[in-house]
Design a protein around this nucleic acid. Structure first.
Lengths: 248, 248
DNA sequence: TATTTGATTTAAAAAATTTTAGAAAAAAGT
DNA sequence: ACTTTTTTCTAAAATTTTTTAAATCAAATA
């Protein structure tokens, strides 16, 4: 790989524990005219980033030795490089955005190579134009949202995203993580009916292989806690034949 | 193979030049309640796909006569079937190129049978949700995007495609999925008379075999909910001898 | 007007979907 | 390693929707 290293070209560090994916991305990015370097775990990602100073980093969240979030933070501490995070779950995305650790963009699995390449280009472009120091700072600070929303309110339902607590009519209710994530996902788009498939993909993650009925059971447990009358739900409603929703 | 072919079951085409692998997968998928058909090279894969129209295709990338990628492209050109690409040890890079060609998922060798079966299920599930493309799309997008308001308005009738709700003169009405789909189809082309046959084909699906009067009954139930006077409908009108329409 | 054809209504049966509950498995905590 | 909690799976029960079939009604027309 080093053989056709070109100092004119931009260099991209690809970090993923699945070698197949790394190779795939590398191949396609090289075809687009980039140099690529690789790492398969968090620790070596940091090491390589320090040594080679790539122009952009593609970083999977799930990594051995050191998770992607820590890697991101560490590297951003050293120098300001555009980092694209890759994740298979929405929950993980929240962490990226929420913890303000400086990721510049993110991509969800399963991604198309075309999409990845496009994002890489876009972020390199952005990094280039924003060369003034003030802007640099800005870019480093808040990647997307100005600030993280810490609560979600729908009707008389309040989700505290920091405490993972739910408040219904003033009663504080504790949900398990899974339950909370499902409720949160629904609460984020009130009125919108969400299919079980979408919930499985977004909450459980796209690589989850389990049964679709798991969603129903989770919904039932949520109802047991937040509904006055489980058999006549007012908050988390079934749209038969489609999925579930929280009315607004 | 044809001996226990079941027209109720989903059919999966397995394409691999290694007969052992084909048999292994076929055995396990049949045990899970699927029909399986097989092909050992690219050209016959395409032929069989065209003739048998399987519900899902498991496609090895390395194939004699025509490589998996071309096969994928060809088949996707003909009809939209979920294709899972399987890549063996060395074909690392092409893999996700496959995704660009329209493959829906990929699995890398060596794979566990359990994993393959799970992915097959997941992708069939995903494919089944054809009736709510808007929902899926919206959900899949980044939550930051302002929600696009997807509604259809005809006269004083408003269909909310996200909530599966109908609004008539300000009254919110809940329809069943089937009722909603019928109304939606008619509302999409106001003024246009739609035959029962067309409704059966478009709403119930072209494979539906059942009584044409089913449409009448569904229309009646819709009227019960949205019309002031059922025996003198103002919104969903009958065109005797032809079908139904919503005037604009 | 009588006849025919097509549309609507109704009720009951059948099918599909969701809910429920309990056991098993997995994960987390001690 | 053990206990507790959480999560998943499975299958039966409950519910809702859809289909079928038959009777009734309405419109067109001969």
């Amino acid at each position: 790989m080093e053989d056709n290293y070109d100092y004119e070209k931009k260099t991209i560090l690809i970090v993923d524990d699945e070698q197949k994916i790394v190779e795939l991305l590398a191949h396609n990015l090289r075809r687009e005219g980039y140099n690529t370097i690789e790492a398969n775990d968090g620790q070596s990602a940091v090491d390589i980033a320090i040594e080679k100073r790539p122009d952009l980093i593609l970083l999977d969240i799930m990594l051995p030795r050191m998770d992607g979030l820590s890697v991101c933070k560490k590297i951003k501490n050293i120098y300001n490089v555009p980092i694209l995070m890759v994740s298979a779950k929405d929950e993980e995305l929240d962490k990226i955005v929420g913890l303000e650790l400086g990721a510049d963009d993110y991509i969800t699995k399963p991604f198309s190579v075309r999409e990845v390449v496009a994002r890489v280009k876009a972020n390199l472009r952005k990094a280039e134009t924003h060369y003034t120091p003030e802007v640099m700072q800005n870019v480093a600070e808040t990647p997307k949202e100005p600030k993280k929303q810490s609560t979600i309110k729908v009707g008389n339902l309040v989700l505290d995203l920091e405490k993972y607590e739910v408040n219904v009519d003033g009663n504080v209710i504790n949900l398990t993580l899974r339950e909370f994530e499902v409720l949160k996902f629904l609460a984020q788009q009130p009125g919108q009916v969400v299919t079980r498939e979408a919930l499985l993909e977004k909450v459980w993650g796209y690589e989850y292989y389990g049964d679709i009925r798991t969603v129903d059971v989770t919904v039932r447990r949520i109802r047991e806690r937040i509904e006055k009358d489980t058999s006549n739900p007012q908050i988390l409603i079934t749209k038969r034949g489609v999925g579930y929703y929280i009315p607004n």
